[in-house]
Computed example of a mutant assay.
Amino acid sequence: MSCFGYCNDCGEIHELPSALAIPHCHDLMAQLSAHKRIDFDVPLALADPRLSTHILYSNMRGRMFGILVCEDVSGNEVILRAFSSRHNGVWNVKGWVPPLVDEHAFVAEVERGNLDIHPLTDLIATLPKESKEWYSKLAERRLVSHGILAKLNALYTFHNFKEESRSLEEAFQLKKGIPVGTGDCCAPKLLNYAAKNHLKPLSIAEFFWGKETASGHRTEGSFYASCEEKCQPILGFMLCGVNKLLHS
C-alpha cells in the first residue's frame, strides 16, 4: 500500500492498493522519456517551453508524479495523473488534475504578504546582529510569516468519498504545525479531483522522475509511498468512504 492514512473519525487506517496503477505509471514514464515535456498531449509546435522536463534534471532536481485509476458512474475506467506542487512555476496543465487551491488567490495572498515581510527583512539587515531590536524584529517577522501561512492554508479545501469537505486545519490529523506545501503532492490532488467528480478510486501509485534528490533517497523511476510529513496526516480524512465504494 503506497497511499494510506489514519482517520480520526473512524479510528482506523484507510488505504488504496497500487497494483492496477503501476502499469499506467510505466506508460507515463515512457511518455516523459520520449517527449521530454509534460504537455505531450499537444503537438510539439504548440508546446509550452516552461513544461519541458529539463528543469527536473537541473539543481532543482526531480519531482513526484502519480496515477490514480478510477471508475466513473457508468463503470468506465478513468486514468488520472498528477505532478507534485508546480512544474517550473506552472500550476495548471491540460491533461493533469488541477491543484486544490485557486492559483490566482494563492499568488495574490503571497503578494500581499510580501508587502509586510520584505520591509521587515530589509530592516533586519540594517540592524546590529544579536541586538535587542534585531531579536525583536526577527520575532515580529516570524509572527507575520505565520499569519501569512495561515491565510494560505485557509485557501485549501479537502474532499473525501463520503461527500464531506474540510479545511486544511480540520483535515490535518496531527496536533502539530502543518508543513508548507501540504495538499500540493500527487495523492491529495488525485483523490480530491476524484471525490469532487464522483469517481470511484481503485488504485494509486506515485513515482519519482528526474535528477535524484540531494540525499539520494529518491531516484528516477522508483516508486514511493505518500510522504509521512505532509500527506499521511490528511489522507485518513481524504480516503474516508473509499472502502465502502470499493466493495459496492
Rank of each mutant, 00 (worst) to 15 (best):
L168V: 00
A187H: 00
K196F: 10
V69H: 04
I22G: 01
C231Y: 00
A150S: 10
E15I: 13
A150Q: 11
G5W: 00
D9H: 14
L68Y: 03
G75E: 12
F106W: 14
G181S: 11
L120D: 09
P43F: 05
E164W: 02
E15A: 15
Y156G: 00
T121D: 13
G210L: 04
S222N: 15
G113S: 07
L32R: 09
M29W: 03
T157R: 08
G147E: 09
N59Q: 11
V180Y: 13
E77G: 06
M1S: 12
C231D: 06
H217C: 15
K36V: 03
V242L: 08
H217N: 15
S84A: 15
L44W: 11
H104P: 01
F172L: 00
P128R: 14
E71Y: 11
Q31C: 12
A214P: 04
I204H: 01
W91T: 12
D48R: 02
G75L: 07
V107G: 05
V101W: 04
K189V: 03
V144A: 13
S222P: 05
G66S: 03
S145D: 03
T53F: 06
P23N: 08
N92I: 12
R50C: 07
S74T: 14
D72L: 02
S248V: 08
F207G: 02
V107F: 06
M1E: 03
S222M: 12
E133D: 13
P188A: 07
R141I: 00
K132D: 07
D41S: 10
E12G: 11
G177M: 02
L127N: 02
E133Q: 15
N160C: 05
S167P: 03
P98I: 11
C185S: 05
A19Y: 08
V90N: 08
I204G: 01
C3K: 00
M238C: 06
C7H: 06
M238F: 04
F106A: 07
R112H: 11
H24S: 10
P23R: 06
D48K: 04
L152Y: 04
L120H: 06
V144Q: 14
I178Y: 00
L80S: 03
M29Q: 12
V90H: 05
E130Q: 15
M238T: 06
T213R: 12
L168K: 02
E71L: 15
I204V: 13
L202C: 09
N243E: 10
D184R: 10
S18I: 04
L143Q: 15
R142K: 13
K151L: 08
P43M: 09
A154P: 04
V93D: 09
G241N: 02
K36P: 01
L191T: 02
S33K: 14
L28W: 11
M29N: 08
L32K: 09
